[in-house]
Simulated scan of single mutants.
Amino acid sequence: MTHLPERLLAGYRNFMAGRYSAESDRYRSLAKDGQSPTTMVIACCDSRAAPETIFDAGPGELFVVRNVANLVPPYAPDGQHHGTSAALEFAVQSLKVSSIVVMGHGRCGGIGAALNPSAEPLSPGDFIGKWMGLVAPAAEALSGNLMTAAERQTALERISIRYQVANLRSFPCVKILEGKGRLTLHGAWFDISTGELWVMNPETGDFERPQLK
Rank of each mutant, 00 (worst) to 15 (best):
R182K: 15
P172W: 12
I159T: 13
G205H: 04
S170R: 12
M103W: 06
G179D: 05
K175W: 00
K32Y: 00
P73Q: 10
G129M: 08
S143N: 11
S170P: 12
L212H: 08
G195F: 08
V97M: 01
A76L: 15
V68D: 12
H186I: 04
I54Y: 02
L115R: 11
W189M: 01
L71A: 09
M147D: 07
Y12R: 00
G129K: 07
E89R: 04
V92M: 03
D191C: 09
T204Y: 04
A87D: 05
D206E: 09
D191L: 06
G110C: 11
L95E: 00
L8A: 07
Q35A: 09
S85R: 04
V65R: 02
W198H: 14
G60K: 00
M16G: 14
L4E: 00
N167W: 03
M16S: 15
M16T: 15
P210A: 04
Q164W: 10
R48E: 04
P117F: 01
V92G: 12
R169N: 01
P59L: 11
V174C: 13
T84N: 05
T84H: 07
L95F: 05
T154K: 10
G181S: 04
Q164P: 11
S118I: 02
P117I: 04
N116R: 02
L156T: 08
R182N: 12
T2Q: 15
S143I: 13
E151Q: 14
V72S: 01
G112L: 03
H3F: 15
I128M: 15
S99H: 14
R107S: 13
P51G: 09
A17Y: 12
I42W: 05
A114L: 03
L177Q: 13
G18V: 02
I111T: 14
G179P: 06
G125P: 06
A113Q: 07
V199N: 05
Q211N: 03
A119V: 05
D33M: 00
P202E: 03
F15E: 05
G104P: 03
A43M: 02
D25L: 07
A10Q: 15
F63A: 05
M40F: 00
